[in-house]
Nucleic acid binder design. Sequence first.
DNA 1: TTGAAAGCGCTAACAT
DNA 2: ATGTTAGCGCTTTCAA
Lengths: 333, 333
Amino acid sequence: MSRKPNLKDVAKVAGVSAITVSRVLTDPTKVSDKLRNKVEQAVRETGYIRNHAASALASSRSGVIAVIIPSLSNIVFNEVLQGIYQTARPNNLQVVLGDCHYSPLEEEKLIATLLGQSPEGIILTGAAQTDYARKLLERADIPVVQLMELTDQPIDMNIGFSHFHAGYDMTKHLLQRGYRTPGFIGARMDPRTQQRLAGFRQALADWPQPCQSFVQTTTQPSSARLGGQLLQALIAESAGKCDAVFCCNDDLALGALFEAQKMNLAVPGDIAICGFNDLESSSLVNPSITSVASARFDMGKQAVEMLLAAAGKPRKSIAPIDVGYQIIARRST
Amino acid sequence: MSRKPNLKDVAKVAGVSAITVSRVLTDPTKVSDKLRNKVEQAVRETGYIRNHAASALASSRSGVIAVIIPSLSNIVFNEVLQGIYQTARPNNLQVVLGDCHYSPLEEEKLIATLLGQSPEGIILTGAAQTDYARKLLERADIPVVQLMELTDQPIDMNIGFSHFHAGYDMTKHLLQRGYRTPGFIGARMDPRTQQRLAGFRQALADWPQPCQSFVQTTTQPSSARLGGQLLQALIAESAGKCDAVFCCNDDLALGALFEAQKMNLAVPGDIAICGFNDLESSSLVNPSITSVASARFDMGKQAVEMLLAAAGKPRKSIAPIDVGYQIIARRST
DNA sequence: TTGAAAGCGCTAACAT
DNA sequence: ATGTTAGCGCTTTCAA
């Protein structure tokens, strides 16, 4: 046999009709044990694999969900992806994934491309979609989940947490620990990073005594190396007065810590350091780094579950789901 | 019109036949300017989006490639994925991704599932596929690339480097630096990790003087935390005699370093540490960690290019491509 | 350059 | 519980 086997081939081998084979594959309980065994045997024998395109065309169910993340290299999204993939698989959903490199325009193009796969739902990161992207999504009329942050104007469903409040609380943590001239270092400066910075500023504004503060940001991609550089810039800018650094993520925080050690600055004695995302390393370095934890795996999982729950049903407006966050105080502050 | 527009609808609006619309979408040069303009106008007017499933079924070209990696959480594969996605997109290829959690059986199931998408090629990690998986792949008759490691019995194409030789060279590096009682710590113990360990053992066997060595491994997933635990176990096993540790990857190495610092062991004075994969942190910690670098992004990129080059052509046996590796000696050894 | 007809492989809907 | 029939929406093939 040279040609790839199709349903009819399997049916012939099993001595049944094509639809029976189809039923065994789709819902085995609809077929008697006897025939089911025959069919399963025939499937194995022929190495049959169902043609997804034909199945999708005939049933108008693609079994696909689309997912767009801003970065494949940021481990944060990997944990979300794990939640997504692990929930999608047992539900027989294929994931088609796009990386929009933090660009709403790239995201728009990706949405257009991915919608061509007739996904049964789509998961997006953040809420910075272009108007045209929103239009495309509305026309597609499929469930949409916006992930990671909370938004007032969701396209459809929304799950995440407030980066503003997390940034606010982290800054308050620094102030409460007695640091009075805190700095903020940020890379990439995507919307969520900006919200963290806004939280930082608001917390300072709300503090009873006025505090001097310093901010160093760049739109360059985040990395530990950059964390070191930004720390240097911050210390230079503040002429050494800065006594604490809020790093917009843990990569930066780790780099800042290593750099501080190279500069013979005691952490937290000379300078406190805190990060965001609570990566594993942050709890293992010396000193361990204070950070913000959030349920990333769970967000991915829930996003898929929300799509599943919404499938087929008429769209009803669901309140955004706030999964919250947690300040994990450690030795670095 | 409430129903989603199809080719015929667009054709009617444009006053042409369906096939003409199809041609405008696929290869506009095949249609006269006059009709092409009419059609393009009609497409915009109707908001038409081509049905991928029908297109794939009729043309038997899915525009999809399948990729299976052992882990979404291991940053190493993310870099490979970036190479894959960044090469796939400009070539109008969709990637369908599967995570087999280092299990050949899960991989087999994933292959079966992903082949259902009629991918035009498939990229696999490693060479530990089950017999049935290999049968499925042969039957599918599409280009296959096995990635990351080199194998004598490739299914089709192969690109990677020798983990055995890398492990061998790294161990030789330790011996040449004067360490005589080296240890190896390994987690997960997937085939590539085992090859690194085999290289470690061979290097010791080949060394002119006999050396005592220690090995601590676990099949648990790798993590920095585990690196610390394995280091403790190694030191206990060797009663402190161990003077160098070859960690099977950089996560373990970082954890081992942090643990050594907590134990007040000088690195590399009391104990040398080296890792594998050359993650960014390895170059930034104090002391920086010796590691093995390889061209992961490039491997992903090349794998897609190999699929593209092989598409359609009769399968000819191509020699495995060795992308090599590099020992990056740093202060930790 | 354009179109008409004939499926691609599967499943929904309708028998039996 | 099983089978028959008729498409799903597109592209291939062949004809004009």
